[in-house]
Amino acid sequence: MVLKVCAGIVLYNPEIALLKKNISALSPQVEKVLLYNNGSANFREIKTEFSRYDGVEIVDGKENRGIAFALNQILFWAEKNGFPWVLTMDQDSVCADNMIAEYSKYSNSNEVALISPYVLNNGKTTLSELKAMELPNVTEINDPVKCITSACLTNVKIAKKLGTFNEKLFIDCVDIDLNCRVLEAGYKILRINTTYLIQQMGVGKTIPLFEKLEKLTHIDIFRRAKSAAVYPDIRLYYHSRNSRYIRKKYKIHGKQTTAWFILLYYIYFSIFYPSDRNRFKMWKAMIKGFSDYKIPMLWEKS
C-alpha cells in the first residue's frame, strides 16, 4: 500500500544542523514537509536555508502560540492539501529511514487513529538494545502516555472528529490529551517496533549511578532513570498544571500522570538536576502549575 503522507515540524529556535538531519531523513519518505515557525528568533536563517529545499514549505506563525496551536495548523494544512495522514515531528528528532514504509502496513484500518515508533530517547535505549529485545512487530498501546507527538502518524479525519489538539494546554501533555480522547472513543494507537525515532527530550543529563546499576542488573527502572531530561522552570509549570488537568478529566490517563508518580518525578529532578538550578524556583513553578489548574478560565472554550 502506498501511503499518502505529509510531515509537519514545529520550529522554535531550532539548531539548524540537527534540523537538516531531521529533514534529510523525512523528505525521501513523504510527499511534503511543512515547517511551521512558532516564533523562532532565527527564522531568517531558517528561511534562507530551507526555502531552497524541494518538497519543503515554510509557514511563519509570527509568534509562539503554543505547541498545540502549531500542531493544529499543521493538521489543517494537511487536510487542505488532501493528505489523510500527517506525520508530526519535533525539530530535534531524527526518524529511521524505513518509518513510513513500516507504518503503511498498518494504516488501512478505520480503527487506527495514531501510529508511533519505538522511541530511543536521551540514550536510554540504543538501537542494538532494541533489536535484542525481540519485540513483536506491532504493539497496541493502551496507556496514553506511551505515544508521543514526535514521529506520530495521525489520521487527520479522526483527529478532527475528536476535536484536534487542545490549545489551552499550550505545551506539555498535549499529546496525552489527544491520546486519551482517541482511546476513550474506541480507536487504536499502534506502536511499530520495526522502526524507531531518535529523540532528545530536554537537555539530557546522564546519572552515572543509575547507568552502572542498569548495566549490572538490567532492571528497566534503572534504564529509565539513567538519563534525566532537564527542563526550564516554565516547562515544569506547564507539566504540573497540565498533568493535573489530564488526570482530573480522563478515567484512563496513564500511570505517569498520577499524583504520586508526578511527585516522585519532581523529587527525582530535584536530586539529579544540575547543581546550578535553583530548587526553590523549580518547586515554586511546579506548585503554581498545580494550583493554576483550578482557574476555570484556563479551560473555558474560546
Rank of each mutant, 00 (worst) to 15 (best):
R223M: 08
D220I: 13
A113F: 12
D177W: 00
I198S: 01
A101R: 07
A151E: 04
K105I: 03
N122E: 11
M99P: 04
V112L: 11
I207M: 02
I115S: 06
I148C: 10
F210C: 03
L120G: 06
N166M: 01
I192P: 06
N142M: 10
C147N: 03
E134P: 03
E111R: 14
A132T: 09
I171W: 09
A159K: 05
E129M: 11
L120H: 13
L190E: 03
E102Y: 05
Y106G: 05
H218K: 14
V203R: 03
L178H: 02
R191C: 10
D92Y: 12
G202C: 09
K80W: 00
A132E: 15
L213T: 12
L169C: 12
G204C: 03
L127C: 09
K124G: 13
N137C: 08
L120I: 13
G123N: 05
E134Y: 05
G186D: 09
F222M: 04
L130Q: 08
F170R: 06
K215R: 15
E102M: 07
D220S: 15
M99T: 07
V145Q: 07
D177P: 04
R223V: 07
V182E: 05
L87S: 07
K80A: 13
G123Y: 07
M133I: 07
T149Y: 01
A101K: 10
D92T: 13
R191W: 01
D90H: 07
T149F: 08
M89A: 07
I100R: 05
E184I: 12
L213E: 12
L114T: 05
T149L: 14
C95F: 03
C147A: 15
S116D: 04
K80F: 05
K212S: 15
P84L: 14
N98H: 13
V138F: 07
N98V: 13
L197M: 11
I176V: 12
V94E: 07
E129H: 08
Y118V: 13
L153F: 00
Y118T: 14
L162N: 13
I158L: 14
K215M: 11
D143K: 10
T194C: 08
F83L: 10
V112T: 10
K212D: 12
L216F: 09
D172G: 00
S109D: 14
K157Y: 09
N122P: 02
G123P: 00
V182K: 01
I219H: 07
L162C: 12
G186L: 12
L197C: 11
D172W: 01
I207N: 01
G163F: 11
A101S: 10
V86P: 00
I148W: 04
I100M: 00
M201T: 12
L162V: 08
F222E: 03
T194R: 06
C152Q: 00
N81K: 08
N155K: 10
L87C: 07
P136A: 09
P136V: 10
Q199R: 15
V86W: 06
E167I: 09
S109C: 06
S128Y: 08
E214D: 10
Q200R: 11
L216V: 11
T139K: 05
A185E: 06
S109M: 10
L162P: 04
Q91G: 09
M133L: 15
D97V: 05
F210T: 02
L135H: 06
N155F: 06
L216D: 15
D97R: 10
N121K: 06
K157H: 11
P136Q: 09
L153P: 02
T126P: 01
L120W: 04
V94A: 04
T149N: 14
A185T: 08
C95G: 00
E79I: 01
I100G: 01
